[in-house]
Amino acid sequence: MNSIAVNDLHKTYAGALTPSLRGLSFSFPEGKIAGLLGPNGAGKTTTISILCGLVKQDAGKVRIFDIPQEAGRREQIKRVVGIVPQQIALFPQLTALENLVYFGNLYGFKGKALKDKVMGHLEAFGLEKAANKEVGRFSGGMKRRTNIIAAILHEPELLVLDEPTAGVDVQSRSMILQFLREYNAKGNSVLYTSHLLEEAQQICEDVAIMDEGKLVVQGSPADLINGLDDCRNLEDVFLHYTGHAVRD
């Protein structure tokens, strides 16, 4: 079964001159760490927003673990998907513990069980000493790690991360990537977007490169690199398919 299957997805935002997605199709088998890569404006965030039901597509089909992303089934999808948005989707005035307990409550968890679960995750991410510190006072790396914990409180089978390592230090990045490997090792699927292609090459088993709202190429990083004579790494593959022109 596929963790994600996207077929002929189209989306044009109201007032936009050009479509964000023009017939995007891809799929990732479950249990893998997959990467959705592309230059700025390629349509990655729009795709993720459609996957989690925050934006409605104009046309096309999305299936998460074979559940169609459509009205009436979205709640079912939310239960199996955890989203780590690009923004730090936390209340900066609340402490890490207060934020995570609140989101845990929204998932239906409560009491000591929830607190233990939250403290366990904080410890795993090296944040136990900062549990009672306001998130607004955290470093970028601490915020990113707390942002991830908020998405895994309900232990989703599919974890979708939009630029999870943007603006973090090397140690935090290493910790996040290690966590993704461990999470995947438990049988969970991971979809990850990043501009850091070296990082994607390290951890992704399957990558889809998209540009201008369409899929350009998909495959394992090794296959993609070996498939082109002049490419030594994923960045070369990326530039080969998306060109050298600067994107805004």
Binding site: C52, G53, L54, E75, K78, R79, V81, I83, P85, Q86, Q87, I88, A89, L90, F91, P92, F103, L106, Y107, G108, A150, H154
Partner: peptide, 21 residues
Amino acid sequence: REREDGSLVRMKLIPGNYGSI
């Protein structure tokens, strides 16, 4: 602020009726 800092998105991504929030 909730919309800008993304916490609104987080709340909407959690299963359950946003009306109760």
